[in-house]
């Protein structure tokens, strides 16, 4: 499912960061909750995932912020150099792998462009009457989007360099939930510092994992009745494509959750960062531990 938008506004919000405002081309856009992201389809055929950082109460607009990556693979560079206001752009329905779970108090930890999903969460948590605090760090003050508007909040600490997450963890109330989004080093530090039961993280890029060697297995598609061998060299997504049973894919790195399929039988080997339910498989990266895996396809 996709939605057509018009690029209403492009504005710089920090060094190498542009905020894009997308307005529904044919009326209101699909509603969303803080933490959600969309796939943005660019005119150069590339698709990229961006967290929504605008106001969920505005039914007509999505807002995202895009940092230009120095080693851009063509997405952020295109947005920064070539995307023009007034252009029609297709976006997906919002998906939320990072939902705000009800709690009496929240600690938000953001690094750089990782502030984007945190921004609407912070507002929502405040509106719900929860106690909030935000620790927001970046490499340099001018690289941190929305820092100025956040600086006026009494519950916000903004700084350059690394946040002392260990100190924050030491003072953490057991009822407080921690939401963290930022570069991998920050996420890894957060996972070391905070109790797993209290921590929610959102990754833009997958971690580097060491997985056991790929093993071949048999894929059964329950609805179409197809049985497909999956060799050790081939991603499940490619096997599905090849069999004409392809599913839509986004990041192809196990981050965005676009290619989600349901497992009916067998034991999946989850290699994704989405962290969905155990019976959900992300075939771009995940495989099987059992010799046979039955999918609801």
């Amino acid at each position: 499912m996709s939605q057509t938008t018009l690029l209403e506004r492009v504005e710089p919000v920090a060094r190498d960061v542009l905020a894009l405002t997308l307005r529904g081309r044919h009326g209101p856009l699909a509603p969303w909750q803080p933490g959600a992201h969309i796939d943005l389809s660019l005119p150069n055929w590339l698709q990229r995932q961006y967290s929504l950082c605008g106001d969920p109460a505005d039914p007509d607009r999505y807002r995202i912020a895009v940092r230009r990556e120095p080693l851009s693979r063509g997405g952020s560079e295109y947005v920064h150099l070539f995307l023009r206001e007034g252009r029609e752009l297709t976006v997906s329905l919002p998906r939320n792998n990072f939902p705000l779970v009800p709690a009496p108090s929240y600690l938000f930890v953001a690094g750089g462009i990782g502030i984007t999903p945190i921004l609407p969460m912070l507002r929502a948590a405040t509106a719900l009457g929860a106690a909030t605090s935000l620790v927001y760090t970046g490499r340099a003050a001018d690289t941190m989007p929305f820092a100025q508007e956040l600086a006026s909040r009494h519950d916000t600490r903004i700084g350059v360099g690394r946040a002392d997450l260990t100190a924050l963890a030491a003072d953490l109330d057991p009822s407080t939930l921690v939401y963290c989004c930022g570069p991998e080093a920050m996420l890894a530090a957060a996972e070391d510092a905070f109790p797993a039961g209290q921590l929610h993280v959102e990754r833009f890029r997958p971690r580097t994992w060491q997985f056991p060697a790929n093993r071949p297995f048999e894929l059964v598609l329950a609805r179409s009745g197809l049985t497909l061998p999956v060799s050790q060299d081939e991603p499940v997504l490619d096997v599905l494509d090849r069999a004409g049973a392809g599913v839509p894919a986004g990041c192809r790195e196990g981050v965005c959750g676009t290619c989600e399929v349901t497992v009916l039988e067998g034991t999946p080997e989850h290699r994704d960062e989405v962290g969905g339910a155990a019976d959900r498989l992300y075939p771009c990266v995940s495989r099987a531990l059992s010799d046979r895996l039955v999918l609801d396809l």
Binding site: L71, S72, R252, E253, C284
Partner: peptide, 11 residues
Amino acid sequence: PDVLARMQVEG
């Protein structure tokens, strides 16, 4: 590597 990294497609 920095040149090839920018050319990554589908991982």
